[in-house]
Simulated scan of single mutants.
Amino acid sequence: MKLSDQIISSAKETISNEAQAISNLKNFIDSDFVSTVETIYNSQGRVVVTGIGKSAIIANKIVATLNSTGTPAIFMHAADAIHGDLGIVQENDVVICISKSGNSPEIKVLVPLIKNFNNKLIALTANKDSFLGKEADHILNCYIEKEACPNNLAPTTSTTAQMVVGDALAICLLDLKGFTSKDFAKYHPGGTLGKKLYLRVSDIAGQNMMPQVSPETDIASAIVEISEKMLGVTAVIENEQIIGIITDGDIRRMLKNHQNIGELKARDIMSASPKTIDEDELAVEALDLLEKNKISQLLAVKEGKYKGVVHIHNLIREGIL
């Protein structure tokens, strides 16, 4: 077998192995899983997630997911716990202990200490008959038949299964809490994701100039207004109300269709009833409108009054698109 074929075959086998194991996890969503979700949902404390080795890495990921979806959580390394870090666990906390075998020496030392504190203990394990499984109040079963590792040694499929069960737990809690995109934005204020969840039209329109002309403005002045405000557009305003819009495209069509433009006014070439968006809407909603209508600009409004322009270039610059 060629080296390239061997690589492709190995990669595909790994993915198939893990995909099958993940699919099989559905069979383990049982009353214990329900009880775990209810226990955490009704808890007045945090979720303390602990593990050792690769399971500790997965524990960190589960903690991050829980925190970002509205369930306070904290990581505690199983080895460090028995050397002082056990103080992390507070009276009302629920402890999730992650271990594939459920029989590692550190786990056997840690579990009785947690039980002595009378905290609820959840086992996330592939071996429900293990020491951890038997001592836990509830079991999150993440059994797998084999690792993706050809020697069935390196934690691969097992850690993927642990992470997937952790995700299922977090999403169930999210659903119970009625956690919305607005709540999500509170915990993700940075980066593109945050901007999609909190950046509003007013934040963008406020950065731009406000091109505007009256219906009787001559064409030369309208062109100057569009050029100086650098947005490729101007609103046409009458009695503080938007009655139309003139874009670069309208100017090009005018030049094509009219030999003598000296007599023309803004109202003669404007497009009536332009697309608008309330300035309190999310910027991502503006993007949806722009894409839906295949246009480059929207007029921002507040209670029907003109407040500025949102250009698709603004959204690109902000990373929304």
Score class of each variant (00 low, 15 high):
A78F: 04
N239G: 03
P274G: 08
Q162A: 15
G194I: 12
S221V: 06
N42F: 10
D248F: 03
T180H: 06
S104G: 05
S202P: 04
I204M: 14
D280P: 02
Y143K: 11
D30Y: 05
S221F: 08
S43M: 05
L153G: 09
D280Q: 14
I144S: 04
S130L: 06
S130C: 07
M76I: 03
F28H: 08
E281L: 15
G70V: 04
N314Q: 13
K61V: 04
M209R: 12
T159P: 10
K100C: 06
L25F: 07
T192R: 14
I243H: 05
T180V: 00
G194A: 07
V236T: 05
S181Y: 08
Q207C: 07
L287T: 05
L290S: 02
L25W: 11
N119L: 08
A126M: 06
T159H: 08
E18N: 06
Q212G: 01
Q162H: 14
K2N: 09
S68I: 03
V164Q: 07
G51T: 08
I58C: 05
I139V: 15
D250F: 14
T157L: 05
L176N: 14
D268S: 11
S227R: 14
S55G: 04
Y306G: 11
I320K: 14
E147V: 00
K275C: 02
V49M: 05
V95I: 15
K182G: 00
G178R: 04
V48P: 08
T276W: 09
G244A: 12
Q259S: 07
I320F: 11
S296C: 03
